[in-house]
Nucleic acid binder design. Structure first.
Lengths: 206, 206
DNA sequence: TGCTTTATCAACAATCCGTTGATAATCTGA
DNA sequence: TCAGATTATCAACGGATTGTTGATAAAGCA
């Protein structure tokens, strides 16, 4: 965050207006139908000004959203505190709460960017953030691969996708639950599985 | 499947060539950069012929992929056989195996359509198929909402997204495991959770 | 065979793109 | 404050793609 370059306030203003216009237009007509002309018209800027800062609408989208991704990663950087075997769903992990808090704070933008199924790369980037988060959590809670039910890499992918799916569901439903509640729910189902009565068939040989 | 209309073989041939051209071009340059001109050129057809059958490239994509979705749903329609509480991961549910078998049979196309992050709606449709599948499975295994760890709707979304994520992971890695193995892994982690040693903290009051 | 449907072809106006060069406005730093 | 640098504006361009048209050729059907 914040390199030492002095930034011209005109640049900040212009980028900001273009970003806002883009988000608004994505919501109106979907990302693919958005044109550079429409963006600059809504932002009340000249089209040439757009090309002074971005190569195309994809570039604008990427620059606009990367800041959010960085901010999200930063917010989730609180260290994992695992209580050796027991995990109280009532006090979910702080990073977990931060995940939903952060997204909830920008829910308007996240909703647009994640509901839009044709959104390039944003979903992928968020999946990466979640994968790293889950990989860390799994390392803390279970470093031993032999005690995992499925290959670690597969499990990471499994839960990263699951989390993202629930996040999108949460956003599409206008965030009906608090960040803390969502974090608690996800922790519960992740650790305990979907059913309260769990039948484990463990091979006696292994 | 198969309405009673007689189909002109020219139409079948034309649509087939356009579909093949589209898939090839998506792989080459991504869906967004594909133009109708390029499609018809690769298919060696006149551009006007394209508009005789489809309104635009999105329409072509939808018509092309809907058949696959229907076929997938059909293949997964085998009834659930739950053995009341115990689930042997070695013999996973038949629908589950069919899911991976079907996708594996068209892996080339699924890989292109799911790896491409800007693919309109295909991911959503597959998520819907998976959600229905999971909803059915959950109803069989646990009809009682009170015995679920989290709200049913949330759980469905959770596991549908998780499955899709693992499927995409599987495809991106060139299907390194068999359909049956994948089905078994997903059943295991879904029912048991990620860790073999599971600590359940159940409120004594509830 | 004759009729219908489909495919081809060239051409069209319209839109958007990315860039250019000249000019005006704004900001920075000494 | 003011001069130089940066940024924004404007009009205009060639090029690409789009969606449509009307006329013609080819292929399928019964």
């Amino acid at each position: 965050m914040s390199k030492k370059e002095k930034v011209d306030p005109r640049v900040v203003r212009t980028k900001r207006m273009l970003t806002d216009a883009l988000i608004a237009l994505i919501e109106e007509q979907g990302f693919e139908k958005v044109t550079v002309q429409a963006i600059t018209k809504k932002a009340m800027l000249n089209r040439a000004t757009f090309y002074l800062h971005f190569t195309d609408k994809y570039d604008l989208l990427e620059q606009s959203t990367d800041d959010m991704i960085v901010e999200l990663k930063e917010a989730m950087k609180t260290s994992f505190i695992a209580s050796k075997g027991t995990y109280a769903a009532e006090t979910p992990n702080e990073s977990f709460i931060q995940l939903f808090t952060q997204i909830g704070a920008y829910d308007y933008i996240y909703r647009v960017l994640l509901s839009e199924s044709t959104m390039p790369h944003f979903r992928d980037k968020l999946t990466t953030v979640l994968s790293e988060f889950i990989a860390d959590g799994m390392t803390v809670m279970q470093p031993d691969d032999n005690l995992l039910t499925i290959p670690r890499e597969m499990a990471i992918r499994f839960y990263a996708s699951a989390f993202l799916g629930v996040i999108i569901w949460w956003l599409k439903n206008d965030c009906p639950y608090t960040a803390k509640y969502m974090a608690a729910q996800l922790m519960k189902v992740t650790i305990q599985g979907p059913y309260k009565q769990i039948v484990i068939e463990q091979k006696p040989s292994l």
